[in-house]
């Protein structure tokens, strides 16, 4: 059995496999990395770094995109 970690994504806690990276998180959530901006513990993570960034228990992730606004 794979150990899991808890990560808060957009304000909601979710479980991921231990050893998951940010690109794994996007894949699990079915999000296109070109369409979202990832903030990891308040730091923006650029696309090329998504694969290198390991998730840890208690991390806080914000996934944002552009919506209609004035």
């Amino acid at each position: 059995m794979t150990a899991s970690i808890n990560v808060t994504v957009n304000g909601k806690e979710r479980a991921f496999d231990s050893g998951s990276r940010l690109n794994d998180l996007l894949r699990v959530l079915e999000l296109d990395p070109r369409m979202v901006v990832v903030e990891h513990n308040r730091n923006i993570v650029r696309r090329p770094q998504l694969e290198a960034t390991l998730l840890e228990d208690g991390d806080c992730i914000e996934l944002v995109h552009f919506v209609g606004g004035g």
Binding site: N10, L31, E62, V64, G69
Partner: peptide, 19 residues
Amino acid sequence: VTVAVRRVDLDRTREEGIL
């Protein structure tokens, strides 16, 4: 054209983004 930055709604359709 102006746009706003908001959380992706993880429970809804993926096509709500303005892009």
